[in-house]
Simulated scan of single mutants.
Amino acid sequence: MIETDRLILAEWRDDHRAAIAAINADPEVMQYFVAPMTRAESDAQVDRQILSQAEHGFCFWAIERKADGALMGLAGLKRGAPGTPIEADVEIGWRFGKAFWGKGYASEAARAALAHGFLDPAVPRIASITVPGNRPSWSVMERIGMTRAVEHDFDHPAVPHGHPLRRHVTYFIKRP
């Protein structure tokens, strides 16, 4: 468990599943992904995070608001996707429900995740990716000190050819 002033980056529990499934099913939240997730897809995502935590000591954690325990979304670290320019890197990412947008929660959670990631001396940099149109996400990347690496922008192999969200931009931050 990682704590910030307002948040808890928590390991996943079964009681988180319904709330994250609702966030993952929201078309507005998922507008920069190929499609909203079904409940089964969301549960599989949680299962992957639990496995990542066990194998690597990090994952995209469940983000709880300290004040009331509300599940706000997910944020944290994972291994870079195979077949991408960041596959050898640790990737940072976040996704929050609409009720939690615009309040600085993503930046707060991301800073805590960065600090956790850089505790490992074998991690020289951390990457983040998104689609060019996802200004809110790359704005968070810039607020937490990441720099765009245009030479590493790419077409994501997990997104179908011809899909408007196939192109991805890449950001990095080096160990302080």
Rank of each mutant, 00 (worst) to 15 (best):
R135W: 12
M72Q: 09
L7D: 13
S107Q: 05
V159Y: 08
K174M: 04
H116T: 01
D89L: 02
S139K: 14
A110G: 08
G117Y: 02
A115D: 14
H163G: 07
F58S: 04
L77M: 10
H163P: 03
H56K: 14
M146D: 08
L7P: 01
L119K: 14
R125F: 05
F60S: 00
C59T: 11
A81D: 12
G145K: 11
M1W: 14
A81M: 12
M37H: 13
F172W: 14
A122L: 09
P164L: 09
R111V: 00
D26T: 03
H168W: 08
Y171C: 00
K103E: 13
A81N: 10
H163Y: 08
K66E: 04
E151T: 04
P36Q: 05
G93E: 11
K103S: 08
I2H: 13
A54F: 00
T84A: 03
A35C: 03
M1Y: 09
A110F: 04
V150D: 15
R95P: 00
F96H: 06
T84I: 03
A10S: 15
L51K: 14
L7W: 04
A62T: 00
I50P: 01
A40Q: 08
E142Q: 15
S42E: 09
M72K: 04
P160M: 11
G93S: 12
H163F: 13
L51D: 15
R17Y: 02
E108H: 07
R13K: 15
A22K: 12
R65A: 08
E91T: 02
Q45E: 14
N134R: 13
P124G: 07
I23Y: 05
A106R: 05
W94R: 10
E142M: 05
V169K: 13
D153E: 11
D68N: 15
Y32V: 01
D155I: 01
P121R: 12
T170C: 14
V29T: 11
L71S: 02
H156C: 05
A122N: 12
L77T: 04
R148K: 11
E108F: 03
A19G: 00
D153Y: 07
W61I: 10
I20M: 14
A21D: 04
F58V: 08
S128D: 06
I92S: 13
H56N: 15
W138V: 09
P82T: 10
T147Q: 15
N24A: 11
L165Q: 04
T38C: 00
W138R: 04
R17T: 00
F58C: 04
H163V: 07
R65D: 02
T147D: 12
N134I: 08
R148D: 03
E64W: 03
W101D: 10
H161G: 02
M37L: 15
E91N: 11
S128K: 10
A22V: 03
P176I: 03
V169C: 13
M1N: 13
